[in-house]
């Protein structure tokens, strides 16, 4: 039996998914539901994650817009990449992003995701996030305030409702070769995270 992510990977590489592009009443309703309910994956990838708890708790209360956390990537709609990504995290982010069910969106937080930010000369962080996974919304700043994060979510809701350009997951499917090429350029051939099976051989 194949594992879930392998199936997903195959599907990404070989088969074009059906899209709900054509407009009509039913699609409008579906988009309305999508807009009203956004599950955010609980993955704090960088320093921007420190502003996520205030956003989701009682001071700023993102849940009044229907935005709430989801524990697993299977259930999530949005992954918030909160800041710089080291190679090691990028590998997990790609893995996580491919585990999510489409339609899925990416919000990139902080200037580090746009052009490296503070860490422009660091040897271990990537500089442009949208070369590796498609980004739907940027919130700039170092670090963005909770208001900025909320604004990014609301802008994303508007984007979902208007169904403007091809959203990120569609672009990812169409240009999978280009994304894969970029990913391989920095991560090498194994994009899937490789865990060394330590203590089985070590005899600790």
């Amino acid at each position: 039996m194949k594992e879930g992510f392998l199936i997903e990977q195959e599907r990404l590489e070989h088969e074009a998914a059906a899209s709900l592009k054509s407009s009509g009443l039913i699609n409008d309703i579906i988009r309305y539901f999508r807009k009203k309910s956004i599950f955010v994956l609980a993955y704090g990838t960088g320093c921007g994650a420190i502003e996520m708890p205030p956003t989701f708790t009682s001071r700023y209360d993102a849940e009044r817009f229907g935005i709430r956390g989801a524990a697993t990537p299977r259930q999530a709609d949005v992954i918030v990449v909160s800041g710089y990504l080291s190679f090691k995290t990028l590998r997990r982010i790609i893995h996580t992003y491919e585990q999510m069910a489409s339609p899925k969106y990416v919000i990139a937080l902080g200037s580090c995701t746009i052009n490296g930010g503070m860490y422009w000369d660091s040897y271990n962080t990537i500089k442009q996030l949208d070369k590796y996974i498609p980004v739907d919304m940027y919130a700039n700043g170092c670090m963005p305030r909770p208001e900025a994060l909320l604004e990014a979510f609301i802008a994303l809701q508007k984007k979902i409702e208007n169904d403007e350009e091809p959203s990120g997951w569609e672009r990812y499917l169409e240009n999978i070769e280009w994304y894969r090429q970029n990913q391989r350029a920095v991560l090498g051939e194994d994009i899937k995270p490789a865990y060394e099976a330590d203590w089985y051989t070590e005899g600790r």
Partner: peptide, 20 residues
């Protein structure tokens, strides 16, 4: 039975950046 910590997801190389 066994536990092992893995870090490195946030390594930015501050010590190198400060040297520059």
């Amino acid at each position: 039975q066994r536990a092992k910590t893995h870090v490195g997801y946030l390594h930015r190389g501050f010590e190198k950046l400060v040297e520059r």
